[in-house]
Every structure is written in C-alpha cells, then in structure tokens.
Amino acid sequence: MQIDLSGRRAVVTGSTGGIGFAIARALAECGAAVVLNGRGEERTASAVARLREAVPGATAEGVSGDLGTAEGCAAFLGRAGEADILVNNLGIFAPKPFLEIDDAEWHRFLEVNLMSGVRLSRHYLPRMAKAGWGRIVFLSSESALNIPREMIHYGVTKTALLALSRGLAESVPASGVTVNAVLPGPTRSEGVAEFIDQLSGERHLAPEEAEKVFLAENRPTSLLGRLATVKEVANMVAYVCSPLASATTGAALRVDGGVVRTISP
C-alpha cells in the first residue's frame, strides 16, 4: 500500500512544530504541495526551510497569520490559495482550574480551537465539493471523550470539533469530499512536554520520568504505556487524506494509545 498525493495541495494550520509540522512533512513525503502556517513570519519561514531540508524536492510555502480571529483567517485565506486537503490542526491548551477560567479565556479557546476550523472549512468545503474531491481533517483529542479536569475548556473545544466534523461530512454526501476527525492521545511534542512539566510542579523530574508519572497519574488507562510520537499521529492523518481512505468519512479516528476505555465512538 502506497500513499500518493502527487498533484494535491494541502493547507496545514498550526504547522511550525509538533504534530502540525509532522503532518505537513508526512503529506510532503507523499508528494503533496504543502502550505505551512504559524503566527509569525520568522517561525513560519523557519518551518518551511526545515521541511524542504527534511524532504528534498518538496514543494512547500509558508503563510503566517493569527487564525484565532476572523480577520486573521480572512487575511490567511487571501494568501493561501486553493487546497485539495485542509488539516485543521491549530489548537491551544493550558492547565487551569475551571473556576479560574474567565469569559475572555473561554472565548480565546473557542476562537482558536473551534472557529479557525469553522472559518477555513466554510471557505474550502464548497470548492472541494465543486471539484469532486477533497479532504478535511480536524485534529481533535482523546480529551474530547475524556474531558480533562485540569483543562475543561480545552476538552469542550475538542468535543465540539467532533460534532463539527460529523456535521460537515453529513452536509456533502456523495461529493468525493471526506471529512474526518483524528483524536491523538498524549503525544510527545514540544507543547506537551511543557504541559507535563507544568503539571509535575516542583518535583523537578527528568523528562522521561515526568512522562511516566503523567501517564500514571493523569492517563492511567493508556495501553501503549508511553507517549505517542508526532509521526505516529501524522501517519494516520496522511492515510485519511489519501485516495486510499475514500470510504472513510464522518469518522472519529483514535490514535490515543488505548487511553479511551470504550470500543467506539
């Protein structure tokens, strides 16, 4: 089985590092032209350079912009061009007790994690349907199903992405366009490393030990027994974006290491 995305153009949001960059790299390795996105010009340009170095001959460009606002999304869409594949990866998270999360922070999480995907999908979905082929993928999380008490607002936005993904899939039946959500579990990325360090507090644990403690205390149902790698998540996304996954739509696909103790969603 070989994934071939030659001739396809992919937009991956929040792709200057972590899972997003791994997804952009995986799609480029499959032959897709890739548009990377970050908030700042310098970081975005650096990510494009790293991708071109990692995947010789890759067609990659960067479009920076803050997609956590309506104005930022509009400006991004004015520069990003057309896309056959849209990966809504952009997301923020931070541990915070529910009673300390004010309205402004709720709105910020909803704007970044949910509305960025709403706005970009609203732009690209009809174009894909008209062309008769397209892929939209939302990066949700196992936190959509196991709402984390340490960051309820994050879990709520990730649950909303499942509803959005399924609803969009329902809206374009028999169109050649698929819409799916991918649910990573705890994944070894820069942001998660900082998050785990925050949770470990003053214990000053080495990274490997901190990961073990995090899984034992916060995700004890993990069957994998370790954090996933960003490449393992990206592999699922690359498959879902490919012609090989043409019968997979409206799905919530877990790469959670068995953290969620249910047979479905």
Rank of each mutant, 00 (worst) to 15 (best):
Q2H: 15
I3V: 15
S6R: 12
V12F: 03
T13P: 04
T16A: 07
G18I: 01
G20Y: 06
F21C: 08
I23F: 05
I23M: 10
A24L: 09
A26L: 13
L27W: 09
L27T: 07
C30Y: 08
A33P: 03
V34W: 04
N37Y: 03
G38D: 06
G38P: 07
E42L: 13
E42I: 11
A45Q: 09
A45W: 08
A49R: 06
L51C: 02
R52C: 11
A54C: 04
A54K: 05
V55F: 09
P56H: 02
A58N: 09
A60T: 03
G62E: 11
G65N: 06
G68Y: 00
E71R: 11
E71A: 10
E82Q: 15
A83G: 07
V87A: 00
L90M: 06
I92G: 05
I92L: 04
A94R: 12
P95N: 03
P95W: 01
K96L: 12
P97N: 01
F98H: 11
L99N: 15
D102S: 07
A104W: 13
E105S: 12
W106V: 06
H107M: 15
R108W: 02
L110M: 15
N113H: 01
L114H: 10
M115D: 00
S116Y: 03
R119Y: 04
Y124V: 01
Y124N: 08
L125E: 09
L125K: 05
L125W: 00
L125N: 02
I136D: 00
L139F: 05
A144P: 02
L145A: 08
L145R: 10
R149A: 13
E150R: 12
M151R: 13
G155Q: 01
T157G: 10
T159G: 15
L162M: 08
A163E: 05
A163T: 14
A163V: 13
S165Y: 10
L168K: 04
A169P: 08
A169Q: 05
A174E: 15
G176Q: 05
G176L: 09
N180G: 06
R188I: 09
S189H: 00
E190H: 08
A193H: 15
A193I: 07
I196Q: 01
D197G: 13
Q198T: 14
R203N: 02
P207I: 06
E208P: 10
E211T: 13
A216L: 10
A216Y: 05
R219M: 11
T221P: 00
L223M: 14
L223D: 07
G225T: 06
K231M: 09
V233I: 15
V237N: 06
A247E: 13
T248L: 15
G250L: 00
L253N: 00
G258T: 12
G258Y: 03
V259N: 00
V260G: 01
T262H: 15
T262I: 13
